[in-house]
Design a protein around this nucleic acid. Structure first.
Lengths: 215, 215
DNA sequence: TGTACATCAGTGAACGCGCGTTCACTGATGTAC
DNA sequence: TGTACATCAGTGAACGCGCGTTCACTGATGTAC
C-alpha cells in the first residue's frame, strides 16, 4: 500500500481510534498491540511505524479520548442552550453511557489507569482543568466557588458511572445514576434557593458549611 | 515448614493481605503471583496450595479489601459519634487517603478493575449495599431518599479520590478533595436549612428538583 | 507523458521475557501404635 | 514417652503461551529525469 502521507495518516488515525475505544473498555492492560492492529486492519509488525512504544500509544490514545470527550461536551452544550447542567447530567448519567464505556467519558473509564501509569499522569491535569471550566460555566452562585463546585460535580458524575458499571444491573442497591443526578441537581437548586432566602432576610451568613477554600 | 493448620492459615492470610494491598495500588493486572508470594515470604510454586487460580485470588483479595474497609468504617463511626458524616468526609477526602491507595477505599481503587473482571463483578453489589446503608444512617432528611443520597455521596467521594490520584499534585486544578468535601457537606446542610425554611412557611414543595425516584 | 529509482508503510517470522500454571520433590508436623 | 509412617505446605525447576519488540523483506507510491 505504498507510503503516501495520506494513507499513513489514515492508518495512524484508525489505530488511535480503535485504541481509544478498547482502552476505555478493557483498560490499559486489557488490550494487546496485535489485537489493536488487527482491528485497525493491519498486522502487528507495522505498529512501530506509527509509535515508538506501547507507552507512546497510551499517551496518544488517552489524548484522543479526551479530545473526543471535549468535542462531545461542546456538541451537547450547544444543543442544550440555557439548561446546560440539567442536559449534561441527563446524558452523562444515562444507562447508555454506563453500557458503552468505549465511547464514553475517559475520566470515568481511565482515571485509575492513568493514575497508575507515569507516562499518562503528566497529561491529565490540563485536560481535566478544561472540563472543570466548562462545567463551572454552567453553574450559578458565587463566582469564586464555581471551579470547586464544578470539580466536585465532575467527581460525583465520574464516580457514579464507574460504580454503576461495577454494580452491573444488580437490584440490591439504589440506582446510583439516578441518585447522583438528583443529588447534584438538588444541591445546585438548594444552593440557589438558599441564597434567595438569605437575601430576603438580609442575612450574610451565606456559605456557612464551607470551611476550606476550594481553589 | 510442615503442614500444621495454623501455619497454613497464617500463610493464606499473609498472601491475601499482601494481595489486597498491592491490587489496590497497582490494579489487578499490575501484580504477578510471584511478586505477591515473595512479599508474603514464600515461593511462587506454593501459590496453588492456597488458591485454585489467579482469578480465585482476585475474588478473595477483593473481599478482603472490603472487609478491611468495613472494619475501618466501623471504627471511624464509633470514634466520631454524632457528627458521623463530617468525620467520614474529613478522613476519607484526606491527602493521606489519596497517597495510600494500598490501605484505602477499594471502591475508589478497584471499582473499574472490578467492573472489567467477571469473577469479581458478582461480589460487588452486596458489599456496596452495606456502605450505602452505613452512610444513609448518617444522613438526616426524608427517610426514603436517604439510600439514594448516600449512594450519590459515595460516588462523589470515591470519584474524588480516584481523580485526585490521577491529578497528582498538579496546581492547574482546584483541590478536588477539599472541593468535594465542601460540596457534599454544603449539600447536606443546605438540604436541612431548606427544610427548615419550608417548614416555617408551611410549604410542602420539599423535594422539588428531584424528578426520578432514587430507589 | 513515460521510465528508473528511492522511499517507506505494511508484512509476517522470529526473539526474548515474564507470566500463570504444573510437577516431582522435601522435610516438618500430626497421627497411630 | 518413644518410634514409624502418612500427610501436605512449601520449594524451585520446567512448560507453554502471549506479549512487546525487532527485522529482513515487499511492493505501491512519490520523485527525478
Amino acid at each position: 500500500m505504498g507510503h503516501s502521507k495520506r494513507a499513513k495518516d489514515a492508518s495512524h488515525d484508525r489505530i488511535l481510534s480503535v485504541a481509544a475505544r478498547r482502552f476505555r473498555e478493557r483498560g490499559f492492560d486489557g488490550v494487546s498491540i496485535a489485537d489493536l492492529m488487527t482491528e485497525a486492519g493491519l498486522t502487528h509488525g507495522g505498529f512501530y511505524k506509527h509509535f515508538p512504544s506501547r507507552d507512546a500509544l497510551l499517551v496518544e490514545a488517552t489524548a484522543r479520548c479526551f479530545r473526543d470527550a471535549r468535542l462531545g461536551l461542546t456538541r451537547s452544550m450547544e444543543k442544550a442552550r440555557g439548561r446546560g447542567l440539567e442536559a449534561l447530567l441527563e446524558s452523562y448519567l444515562s444507562s447508555e453511557h454506563e453500557k458503552d464505556p468505549g465511547s464514553g467519558c475517559p475520566v470515568a473509564a481511565l482515571a485509575v489507569d492513568i493514575s497508575r501509569t507515569a507516562a499518562t499522569r503528566q497529561t491529565f491535569a490540563p485536560v481535566f482543568a478544561v472540563y472543570v471550566d466548562r462545567v463551572a460555566s454552567m453553574l450559578d452562585g458565587p463566582e469564586e466557588t464555581r471551579p470547586g463546585r464544578a470539580a466536585a460535580i465532575i467527581c460525583a458524575m465520574a464516580g457514579a458511572i464507574a460504580i454503576a458499571r461495577a454494580l452491573g444491573d444488580s437490584r440490591v442497591v439504589p440506582n446510583v445514576l439516578a441518585a447522583t443526578h438528583d443529588f447534584i441537581l438538588s444541591a445546585a437548586t438548594a444552593d440557589r434557593k438558599l441564597r434567595m432566602h438569605d437575601r430576603h432576610k438580609g442575612s450574610r451568613r451565606g456559605g456557612s458549611g464551607r470551611r476550606r477554600a476550594s481553589a
